[in-house]
Design a protein around this nucleic acid. Structure first.
Length: 477
RNA sequence: GGCGGCUUGGCCAAGUGGUAAGGCGACGGCCUGCAAAGCCGUUAUUCUCCAGUUCAAAUCUGGAAGCCGCCUCCA
C-alpha cells in the first residue's frame, strides 16, 4: 500500500504522489521566537519530524524547511518592555527552542530560514505582487494584498469572502479596497526596527515571509505544507493567495495540519493561565515519554496533557524497554538484515496518514506476543524462536528510528531512571545497599519479620525492593 | 451567525462496510518465605440517541442531543 495523506485542501485522505518522482519538498511553519515554547509547539514539531523521517524512510529525497518568525509585533513589544534588542530576544529563544527540540530527539530540518535574513526576498515577492496588480500601496499604511484579485480566496479554510465580509468584526480601515485585504508590508512606527523598501521604511507582514521563503527554498509550488490547525485561517489561506496570485499555479499540493494539545481537557490559553512549557515538562518526565505521548494519538486529533496520561505513557514505555531487555538477556539481538510482520503492520499504519497511534498499538501487540513466546521457552529460545524474536527485535529498533522513541539501550534507560529518582530524593546508595545486605542476612536466617521490617522501612522512603534470581535490586518510586 | 471536527469498555485510544487493535486500571494465575517487579489470562454481543440504505454499518445517508475548535495573536 502506498502512502495516503489527509489533505486539508480537499478534506479527505489522498494518495500521496509528489510533484517530482522521488523528491518531496515540505515547508512547516515554525515558531515566532518571542517566548518560551509550549507543549503545543512540541507536538507540531514532533509530528512533522516523524513525517519527515517516514518520508525519508520511504526513499524520498526530502527537502524540509521550517522557518523562524523573528520579526513580529510581539517581539517588538517584548523588546520595548525589556529594553533589549529584538535580535537578542529572538536569538535567545531560538537557542532555547533548539535545545528543547534536541532533547525531544527532533532532527534538524534541511533549512531553518529566518524572516529577518530574507528581507530582500520578501521585498522582491511584494514587488511581483504589485507588478501583477495583486497588491497595492497606500501611503502611510503600507502594502495590502488585494483579495478581490484572487478569486479562489477561502478555498483552504472553506470560507466564503462574502460571508466573512458581512460578519467582519474588525474595524474597517477605510483605505483598504476590501475589508479582508491584509498587510504584506507594514510601515515602521518611530522606535521600531525597520528595513528600507520601495514603500518606505517598514517590515514584512506575517504571511508574506512564508510565501517568499518557501519560494526561495522550494520553488513556485511544492508538495507538503504543514502547521497547527489554527494556522489554516488566516495564515495559510493568505499564503495561498499570495503565492498563487504571483505564480498562477498551485502553491501546495498537500496541506497537513496537526491538532491541539489540551491541558486537563481545556485549551491552553493566557486567560486560564495553563500554558504548559516544554521546559517544565522536560523537568518532570524523560524526553522520550513526552515524545511518545505526543505520538500516542493520531496527529489530527486533539490530545489531552495531564499527569495521568503522562503516567500511563511512562508505564507503557517501561513495558517496551523491559521487553527489549528481556530479549537481550535471552541472547536476541537484531541483525537488521530483514524485516518481519511487525514492520509490515507499522508501515501500513504509517502509510495510512501517519497513524502513529495505531503503530504504537502494533508495537505493544508484538511485545505481548514476544513475551508469550519467551514464556513458552523459559527465556531459552531455540533456533526457530530465536529467528522470530530476532525479527521482532530488529523491527522494534527500526521503528524506534522513525518514531524517535525507545532507542536507548534498555539497561541504560532503567539505570538513568533510577539515578534520576535517587537524585530527586537525595538517596545514598551505599546506605541502601547496606540495609539490603542486612535484610539478606535476616532472610538467610529465616528471620522474616526482621527482613520485612527493613523492607517496610525503605518502602516509607519510596524505595522499593525487588528480589530476583540474581539477588535484590531496588528502585525509587 | 458562518465553517469544521468529535462522541468507542472504569479511564485513554485505534478502527479501511464483513462481524470491536492496543495501553492504563481492576480481577485471577505463574513466580515469591510473604511481597514487589515482571509475565500470562480475564475484562465492550457492542460503538451518544433515532430512523434509513445494505446480505452485512462503529464505519455510508438523514435527523436529534452533547462537547470542542476556527472565524482576532496562536502549534
Amino acid at each position: 500500500m502506498g502512502l495516503k495523506v489527509y489533505n486539508t485542501l480537499h478534506g479527505k485522505k489522498e494518495e500521496f504522489v509528489p510533484l517530482t518522482k522521488g523528491r518531496v519538498k515540505m515547508y512547516v511553519c515554525g515558531p515566532t521566537v518571542y517566548d518560551t515554547s509550549h507543549i503545543g509547539h512540541a507536538r507540531s514539531v514532533v509530528v512533522f519530524d516523524t513525517i519527515f523521517r517516514w518520508l525519508t524512510r520511504l526513499g524520498y529525497a526530502v527537502t524540509y524547511v521550517r522557518n523562524f518568525t523573528d520579526v513580529d509585533d510581539k517581539i517588538i513589544k517584548k523588546s520595548n518592555e525589556l529594553g533589549e534588542a529584538c535580535s537578542a530576544i529572538t536569538e535567545k529563544y531560538i537557542d532555547e527552542f533548539h535545545a528543547e527540540m534536541d532533547a525531544l530527539n527532533v532532527l534538524r530540518p534541511s533549512v531553518e530560514p529566518k524572516a529577518t535574513e530574507h528581507i530582500p526576498h520578501i521585498i522582491n515577492f511584494i514587488r511581483m505582487l504589485i507588478d501583477r496588480g495583486k497588491a497595492y500601496f497606500v501611503d502611510g499604511a503600507g502594502v495590502y494584498f488585494s483579495i478581490d484579485g484572487f478569486k479562489e480566496y477561502g478555498k483552504l479554510s472553506g470560507r466564503n469572502p462574502e460571508d466573512m465580509r458581512a460578519g467582519s468584526r474588525i474595524a474597517v480601515d477605510e483605505q483598504k479596497k476590501n475589508p479582508l485585504d491584509f498587510t504584506v508590508w507594514k510601515p515602521a512606527k518611530p522606535g521600531e526596527p525597520f528595513w528600507e523598501s520601495p514603500w518606505g521604511n517598514g517590515r514584512p507582514g506575517w504571511h508574506i515571509e512564508c510565501s517568499a521563503m518557501s519560494y526561495e527554498y522550494l520553488g513556485e509550488g511544492f508538495d507538503i505544507h504543514g502547521g497547527g490547525k489554527d494556522l489554516i485561517f488566516p495564515h495559510h489561506e493568505n499564503e495561498i493567495a499570495q503565492s498563487e496570485a504571483v505564480f498562477g499555479r498551485q502553491f501546495v499540493k498537500y496541506w497537513i495540519h496537526n491538532g491541539f494539545v489540551d491541558i486537563n481537557n481545556e485549551k491552553m490559553s493566557k486567560s486560564l493561565g495553563n500554558f504548559t512549557m516544554i521546559k517544565e515538562v522536560l523537568d518532570t518526565y524523560p524526553p522520550e515519554v513526552i515524545r511518545m505521548f505526543l505520538l500516542s494519538n493520531h496527529y489530527r486529533s486533539p490530545i489531552d496533557y495531564s499527569e495521568d496520561s503522562m503516567r500511563e505513557v511512562s508505564m507503557g514505555l517501561d513495558r517496551i524497554y523491559a521487553f527489549l531487555e528481556r530479549l537481550e538477556n535471552a541472547g536476541v539481538t537484531g541483525d537488521g538484515s530483514q524485516t518481519g510482520a511487525l514492520w509490515d503492520d507499522f508501515s501500513h499504519a504509517m502509510n495510512d496518514d501517519f497513524n502513529s497511534a495505531k503503530a504504537l498499538g502494533d508495537v505493544f501487540d508484538a511485545v505481548k506476543k514476544g513475551n508469550r513466546l519467551l514464556d513458552d521457552v523459559h527465556d531459552r529460545p531455540d533456533d526457530d524462536v530465536l529467528k522470530s524474536l530476532t525479527l521482532v527485535y530488529t523491527d522494534i529498533r527500526a521503528i524506534s528510528r522513525i518514531l524517535g522513541i525507545f532507542l536507548l539501550d534498555p539497561h541504560t534507560y532503567f539505570t538513568d531512571k533510577k539515578e534520576k529518582g535517587m537524585a530527586d530524593q537525595a538517596i545514598d546508595p551505599l546506605e541502601i545497599e547496606d540495609l539490603i545486605q542486612q535484610r539478606a542476612d535476616a532472610r538467610a536466617n529465616k528471620d522474616f519479620s526482621r527482613a520485612d521490617e527493613i523492607r517496610d522501612q525503605l518502602q516509607r522512603r519510596n524505595i522499593v525492593l525487588e528480589d530476583g534470581p540474581r539477588g535484590t535490586t531496588w528502585r525509587v518510586e
